[in-house]
Design a protein around this nucleic acid. Structure first.
Lengths: 239, 239
DNA sequence: GTTAACTGTTAACGGTGTTCACTCTACGGC
DNA sequence: GCCGTAGAGTGAACACCGTTAACAGTTAAC
């Protein structure tokens, strides 16, 4: 499993990195549509077929880029909430949410590639095992882990299983292991947190809020406070 | 402003309709990517350049299709809530929300074209005057109108302007005319309703909820009840 | 030192949106 | 009722795209 690094596959790894760097450069410059196979090759002074020595297809290149971006986002958010080792968990969640928004606004093209319009894909298997999806799971785990920690430190009031209904409860229970055994009602509230956070950021980054809110920062802040309340976090936290 | 309908422009209008019909057929069959200029021409037994007699570009064709779909969605939702002339306003809003979700799930490809990943477009003017955007405004007006009616019939408790902060209040006030003079706090809650509804439907249709909720119907119902509560609607309504 | 694998090239295929020059038909004005 | 003209449609072509095949040069391995 180690690396012989025969000098050749060191260059190969370097080339792969250069390709992905060029792809990203094009991505931030002109959006997802701009990162084409030929454009990437042009950026490196190569001919298009040369890239097929490194990626089996254009889609595979994009998928690798997606995986990298997920990992970058994940570690960025980790670094953010690990900056000070003794921040309370509520603030950590606040930092996670705000960090996600900041990253999305600072990297709209990358965010668009990661979270923009996934194919409905009615037939496809749920378990796409591309590296991109595995990176997405790690990213999702970051949130689930933190919410579970918040819960286990100070359980928050949550709706009863009767209020939610058996259909919903069963599906929430299936996610229980990822939330360290939290009850269905608490998972429900956590899902709300994620759903609202995700929806807000998408709407802002994709320009659906601009029509009514030219500057959505204040709205986001207010919403963040509101959705945090449901998880027992009653302080909007400093700056 | 009337129509001389010289027999020739009647045929022209018919051809335009056929083109859009073919485009839509391709859309539902294979998603947005499948509705290409050449594919549409093929569908009609025409050569690609012929379409340029009717639409100045491929994008214009898609834009016209978008406008049509917005109008179709708008009238579908209007019909739904005007089916029975004396339904109370709360139920109308409930029908609107559920009708939007149903339409989105029944027409995922069309929904994807309408609401999927708008360009961030940091430079572009806000006031895109394409027919698609005007149709989108009519669609948005449907919601604003109904919410304003709900408010004026039975004002619901809303956060004070001090709670929201001056920055947010100013932006909400700018929307006041579209909400028949509602106060900022009430517009804030209405915006929440729309934001959460839109986010939920997008996440469900675009498959971002499938990972945790294989069947999001129960979750949507619970959320709809929750977001309706904030507007003083305390009944989940029959069926 | 020879052989094999790796990296890159050129040429080509089918696909896309789009433009140009050309025909043919049908309507409107005299 | 004829004629001129605008409209509808075509075929060829351009530039771009992702992708494949056949080929050449370099580098590592035995």
């Amino acid at each position: 499993m180690d690396s012989p690094t025969t000098g050749r596959d060191r260059r190969r790894a370097a080339t792969v990195a250069e390709i992905k760097a060029a792809a990203r450069r094009l991505l931030v410059g002109g959006g997802t549509a701009a990162v084409g196979l030929r454009a990437v090759a042009r950026e490196l002074g190569l001919t298009p077929p040369a890239l097929y020595r490194y990626f089996p297809s254009h889609e595979a290149l994009l998928s690798a880029l997606v995986a990298d971006l997920y990992d970058e986002l994940t570690t960025a958010l980790l670094d953010l909430q690990n900056a000070d080792p003794d921040i309370d968990l509520g603030t950590r969640l606040y930092l996670l949410a705000n960090g996600l928004r900041d990253w999305a606004l600072a990297h709209p093209a990358e965010f668009g590639l990661l979270f923009g319009t996934a194919v409905p894909d009615p037939e496809g298997d749920c378990h796409d095992q591309t590296p991109g999806h595995r990176a997405a799971m790690r990213f999702g785990g970051l949130f689930k882990e933190l919410v579970a920690a918040v819960w286990h430190q100070k359980p928050f009031p949550h709706p009863s299983e009767e209020q939610l209904g058996p259909v919903l409860v069963e599906q929430l229970r299936a996610e229980s292991e990822h939330f360290r055994g939290m009850p269905a009602g608490a998972i429900y509230l956590s899902l709300n947190y994620w759903t609202r956070l995700y929806g807000l950021i998408c709407m802002e980054v994709f320009g659906q809020l601009h029509w009514v809110l030219p500057d959505a920062a204040a709205y986001f802040e207010a919403q963040l406070f509101e959705i945090g309340e449901a998880l027992g976090l009653d302080c909007p936290m400093p700056e």
